[in-house]
């Protein structure tokens, strides 16, 4: 507990607030998944998993690299599950077919997470560079699937635009736009090796010199976008689920 409190005092306040908001969004979406139709389960479970993915910031054992990498796997699974949910909703809008069971969504989500855990367990402890690679893969998938989800949401909205729930999909559109900015800006920094992880790596274990100072303006802008878009996306997810809950009440 003391270790946890010490961690909280060390953590960036803004990052802490972001994690707390992701926590709230995760709680709302998880609660939403319990009392609602099966198709919402994947979407809400996915958003809940984002919180688990982001919770590394407050995890007192995150210095264990395997655990840190596991947060990235959880984050990756989160966007995959969300995308699966929106894809199912889109299929429903086109065919009006609803299949499967809620419990299967919970089970397969857990199964994928367990597989990720086993993958980490049977492999060597990841180095800081490997952890950074995990983050790059996670961000790449997030960026790609965010664009895909924006397109799915547009199509779903077109199909149901005169339905009461259609406005919630506009909200989801805003959510994914913010997520795209959040993850995209981080990926941008990682691709050009301007991210903090890389700076830390080269500071201690490489002779490589960073060109970050030459592009301080765009680096600062990307970091600013990453900071606020990440925060706003957590806010928007929580708000969207509360709005959705009210629409479906």
């Amino acid at each position: 507990m003391e270790q946890f409190i010490e961690l909280l005092t060390q953590i960036d306040k803004f990052e802490l607030i972001r994690v707390i908001f992701w926590g709230l969004a995760g709680a709302v979406s998880f609660y939403f998944s319990i009392g609602n139709a099966r198709i919402w389960t994947s979407i809400s479970i996915g958003f809940f998993l984002i919180f688990l993915g982001q919770a590394y910031a407050i995890n007192p054992w995150v210095h264990y690299y395997k655990l840190s990498a596991f947060h990235n796997i959880v984050g990756t699974v989160a966007i995959v599950v969300i995308t699966h949910g929106f894809l199912e909703y889109y299929v429903f809008c086109r065919t009006f077919e609803i299949s499967g069971k809620k419990v299967a969504v919970y089970f397969f989500s857990l199964l994928i997470l367990a597989s990720g855990g086993i993958f980490l367990f049977i492999n060597p402890t990841p180095s800081p560079n490997t952890i950074r690679n995990f983050k790059i893969v996670e961000n790449s998938i997030w960026v790609f699937l965010s664009i895909m989800n924006l397109e799915l949401i547009r199509k779903i909205y077109t199909a149901i635009k005169d339905s009461p729930i259609s406005r919630a999909f506009i909200a989801f559109g805003i959510v994914f736009f913010l997520i795209f900015l959040w993850r995209g800006s981080e990926l941008y920094l990682q691709i050009f090796q301007w991210d903090r992880d890389w700076q830390d790596i080269i500071a201690v274990s490489s002779d490589e010199v960073s060109d970050i100072d030459k592009f301080a303006g765009r680096v600062n802008f990307a970091m600013l976008v990453n900071k606020y878009a990440g925060f706003l996306s957590s806010l928007s997810v929580g708000g969207t689920f509360i709005y959705l809950y009210r629409l479906l009440r």
Binding site: A37, I39, W40, I98, S163, P164, I165, L247, L248, R249
Partner: peptide
């Protein structure tokens, strides 16, 4: 079952 995905419980 289908309408549940589109409208409120009251409606």
């Amino acid at each position: 079952r289908s309408a549940k995905l589109l409208i409120s419980a009251t409606s």
